[in-house]
């Protein structure tokens, strides 16, 4: 992306955060000390609830099976196999992580409203923004645990495979574990941004609409370069729509470091730092807007 555009987006984002903070100051200023423990308690119950869902264990098991099954391609050279394992493993972590993020985040708030469990919570001294942030934090912890487990399995498989092929002639397996973990961590950052946006949508729409929107955002967010190219060649309303999509939907591809990890390329640190910082900014704005929307929602 053009650096000037990035700076403008960062400045606008910062201005939005400041403006939202000023507008909602009564909400957060008086209760800042109250908010932290409440957010943490809501997050804890969200995690505890997710831990008891079988679907979570099923997704983790499926990814583990996929990663392990990739070691069966014994006709590949060690280096090709390493590439395939790293790329395939990271792709599985990203794809299943995103699917999980969509299904965890899309149901977080609508389920509470549909099952009316939100009544007993909001009747207690819990502010609505605390509820939204607690739910988001809970989802982040769940996703962190899932990504961590899947990454540990991938790293374990890589290390075992490295040990198995080390005595073979022409061995060049040598996976860069640091890069693999880094790429997985960046995928997790993408999940965090996407989850925040899904939470925002879920505060104003039904579960079905949220899930559909989340899939669209995932696709658009992963194809931002193409959307930018399309926008440059389009005209009129189509151009406007593409530009809106390009600037509003998070650039999930900026968090994608699978290529560097699987082709043993150096990690472009400034790009990674920029992606993380803009992700934090974007998430902050999105969560403030989500809190404002949920504050006005009749449950």
């Amino acid at each position: 992306m053009n650096p000037i555009v990035t700076k403008v987006i960062l400045a606008v984002g910062l201005a939005l955060i400041v403006a939202a903070a000023v507008v909602t100051r009564k909400v957060w200023l008086s209760g800042i000390w109250h908010a932290v423990p409440s957010v943490w308690r809501i997050a804890k119950i969200t995690v505890a609830e997710a831990r008891r869902r079988r679907v979570l264990r099923a997704v983790i098991a499926l990814v583990i099976v996929i990663i392990i099954s990739m070691t069966f391609f014994s006709y590949l050279s060690p280096q090709e196999q390493a590439r395939m394992l790293i790329n395939g493993g990271l792709s599985a972590i990203t794809v299943f992580g995103i699917l999980l993020a969509i299904f965890v985040a899309a149901f977080l708030i609508p389920n509470e409203i549909e099952n009316r469990t939100v009544y007993a919570i909001l009747a207690k001294p819990v502010r609505r923004f605390e509820f939204v942030l607690g739910k988001y934090l809970g989802a982040l912890i769940v996703l962190a645990a899932v990504v961590a487990i899947m990454t540990v399995v991938l790293v374990g498989v890589l290390l075992v495979q490295d040990r198995l092929v080390e005595d073979l002639p022409d061995s060049a397996f040598n996976p860069n574990i640091g890069q693999v973990v880094f790429a997985a961590a960046m995928s997790y950052c993408a999940l965090a941004v996407l989850t925040a946006l899904i939470v925002l949508i879920s505060t104003v729409s039904s579960t079905t609409m949220t899930v559909i929107s989340a899939f669209i955002i995932w696709v658009v967010g992963s194809l931002q370069s193409q959307i930018h190219d399309l926008a440059e060649n389009a005209a009129g309303a189509a151009k406007l729509l593409l530009l809106v999509m390009y600037h509003l939907v998070p650039h999930l591809e900026n968090f994608d470091f699978r290529f560097q990890a699987s082709y043993f390329q150096p990690i472009p640190v400034p790009a990674a730092v920029s992606a993380v910082l803009s992700g934090i900014l974007y998430t902050g704005v999105v969560l403030i807007v989500a809190s404002v929307f949920f504050n006005d929602r009749q449950v």
Binding site: A48, E49, R52, N115, R116, T117, Y119, A120, A123
Partner: peptide, 13 residues
């Protein structure tokens, strides 16, 4: 204290 109709609480706990 509020008792909601039909006791809507988290059912996995």
């Amino acid at each position: 204290g509020f008792l909601p109709e039909d006791a809507y609480l988290y059912d996995c706990f």
